[in-house]
């Protein structure tokens, strides 16, 4: 299959030789621009129908809502890129949240609890990665198993109760603001920029594109396939842990069911953003915009007092549309193929 996404990502790292105009055309033809346009139109419509949309407080709340999903979608993009999948992100988020908050309750210092929390998320991702990259077991099955185990452990640890009474200092992480913008939003933007840059320009990450396209050929090309695949799951675990810390400190509690279903949302966003189940494709900015689109639509439902029950329907339909548009685009590009 011809896939434009692969082409785009490669084009981004290379300066076009065929003139500025065609370069411009290529950029305009990317998924990211398409998504941005849709988001732009949706925002205009929303600000027409609801005066509350373009208020600072509303936009801040949208940004906060996006924050967790963006972190998970970043990890998911990396994993999908290397021909994998991570169904356990939601559960890892839940378990890491429980571990961190329980440590805090037990009197562990904030810094230490956060570090241990992040480490435990990273460690769970590492376990996934070992099974997948070293033992070569299907990532769908491994992360499905991890999903059940981590969720089960969260429930066991808490017996289903909330973990509350967290120290004030911890709550600042998620609730604090700088220049009126919540702390986690800065971190989210930082990560998006960092990962996007690294994925396009940094050798070790860039190799993931090769692995996803043809892992066997990548191995023979001297690319350290298992380490890079492993790294993807480790990063995904770390980001889930980070999301857990933001979520628990923002909501001032730990709860075993946090992040339930988040994996599907993250996959949705990554796919809308241009990743493919076949591997070798994916864009960090795309995934970010994917989350943004979903968040703005959800926000619209709230603002327009529409039944929030429609959200699921709309989210599902967006995925259908994204996939369809991609299929059409592929067919169109196929014309150049002999």
């Amino acid at each position: 299959m011809i896939n434009d996404k692969a082409k785009n990502s490669s084009q981004l790292i290379m300066n076009s030789s065929s003139g500025h105009l065609s370069r411009l055309k290529e950029i305009l033809d990317t998924r990211e621009i398409g998504l941005l346009l849709i988001i732009f139109v949706a925002s205009i419509l929303l600000s027409i129908f609801s005066e509350n949309f373009l208020t600072f407080s509303n936009l801040t709340s949208v940004a906060i809502g996006m924050n967790y999903d963006v972190l998970l979608a970043l990890g998911m993009t990396l994993v999908l890129l290397s021909k994998g999948i991570d169904l356990s992100v939601g559960s890892i988020l839940g378990l890491t949240g429980i571990i961190t908050t329980m440590l805090l309750q037990a009197g562990v210092s904030i810094l230490f609890a956060v570090i241990l929390g992040l480490l435990s998320g990273t460690f769970l991702g590492f376990i996934n990665g070992i099974f997948i990259a070293k033992f070569r077991i299907n990532p769908f099955i491994v992360t499905l198993g991890m999903m059940a185990i981590a969720r089960g452990l969260s429930v066991i640890l808490t017996s289903g109760y909330f973990v509350s009474n967290l120290p004030e200092g911890y709550l600042i992480i998620g609730q604090g603001k700088f220049l009126g913008i919540p702390n986690p939003t800065y971190v989210m933007i930082l990560f998006v920029i960092l990962f996007d840059y690294l994925l396009r320009k940094w050798g070790p990450f860039y190799k993931a594109f090769y692995i996803g396209t043809n892992p066997d050929a990548a191995e023979l090309s001297g690319i350290n396939v298992s380490s890079i695949i492993l790294a993807g799951y480790v990063i995904s675990g770390f980001l889930s842990g980070l999301a857990a810390i933001f979520m628990t400190s923002r909501l001032a509690m730990g709860y075993a069911q946090f992040g339930l279903g988040a994996e599907l949302k993250a996959i949705c966003a990554a796919i809308i953003g241009g990743a493919s189940m076949g591997g070798g494709e994916g864009s960090i900015v795309g995934a970010f915009l994917g989350v943004m689109l979903l968040a703005i639509i959800n926000n619209g439902f709230v603002l327009l007092n529409l039944s929030i029950y429609w959200q699921g329907v709309i989210n599902g339909l967006i995925l259908v549309i994204a996939v369809t548009v991609d299929a059409i685009r592929r067919a169109r590009k196929g014309k150049s193929r002999v």
């Binding site: 999948i85 769908f140 599907l264 996959i267 949705c268 796919i271 189940m277 029950y309 429609w310 959200q311 699921g312 329907v313 709309i314 989210n315 599902g316 339909l317 995925l319 259908v320 996939v323």
Partner: peptide, 14 residues
Amino acid sequence: FICTLATLTTLRGV
């Protein structure tokens, strides 16, 4: 996986 994920999400909403 993607197709049925889409219908799953949609159906839950429905």
